[in-house]
Amino acid sequence: MKNTLVALVLGALSLSTVMSSSDPAQAQDRGREPQGSYRRTCRDVRTDRGTLSARCQDRRGNYHRTRMEDYRRCRGDIENDNGHLRCRPHR
């Protein structure tokens, strides 16, 4: 009985730790700029919960708000395609 109670308490503590940390990758992601060629022509770059957002310059020099969801899935270059964030597949 005592062992069962201890196991339940430890299980509850483990579960609360996992739940409070949410997704560790998403928590660590906040505020980090991923690598990519987009950084040369984009500014106000932010990350939050797997979404990359920025203001990126088009060919005429105008800036546009753009975002890329699930940017961590991009295995190639994150690029600025005429004011829009895109994932260029790795070859």
Rank of each mutant, 00 (worst) to 15 (best):
T4I: 15
G61M: 00
S53P: 07
G61V: 03
R55G: 00
D70T: 13
S21R: 15
L15N: 03
C56H: 00
S20T: 14
R72F: 13
M1V: 06
Q57H: 04
A7V: 07
G36K: 02
K2Y: 14
T51G: 02
D23P: 00
R91H: 11
R49V: 09
D81Y: 09
I78H: 10
H64P: 03
T51V: 15
R86Y: 11
A54F: 00
G36Q: 02
M68E: 02
P24K: 04
D48G: 05
C74E: 03
R49C: 05
D29E: 12
C42Q: 07
D81T: 05
P89L: 04
R40E: 15
G76E: 06
T47Y: 04
S22Y: 14
R91L: 07
L10G: 04
Q28M: 11
R55S: 13
R40Y: 03
G11L: 00
D70N: 15
H84C: 01
V6W: 10
G83N: 07
L10N: 01
Q28K: 09
T51M: 10
L13R: 06
P89T: 03
T66D: 05
T41Q: 02
Q26C: 06
L10C: 10
S20R: 12
G50M: 03
G11C: 07
P89D: 11
D23I: 13
P34F: 11
K2D: 11
Q35M: 11
R40K: 13
D29C: 02
N80L: 01
V45R: 00
Q57D: 06
M1R: 12
T4N: 04
E33H: 10
P34A: 11
R30S: 08
S22L: 15
T51S: 04
G11S: 09
D44A: 12
T47D: 08
A25Q: 11
T66Q: 09
T66P: 03
G36R: 06
G61D: 06
L13I: 15
Y63P: 09
A27R: 01
D58P: 09
S14F: 14
Y71H: 12
V45C: 05
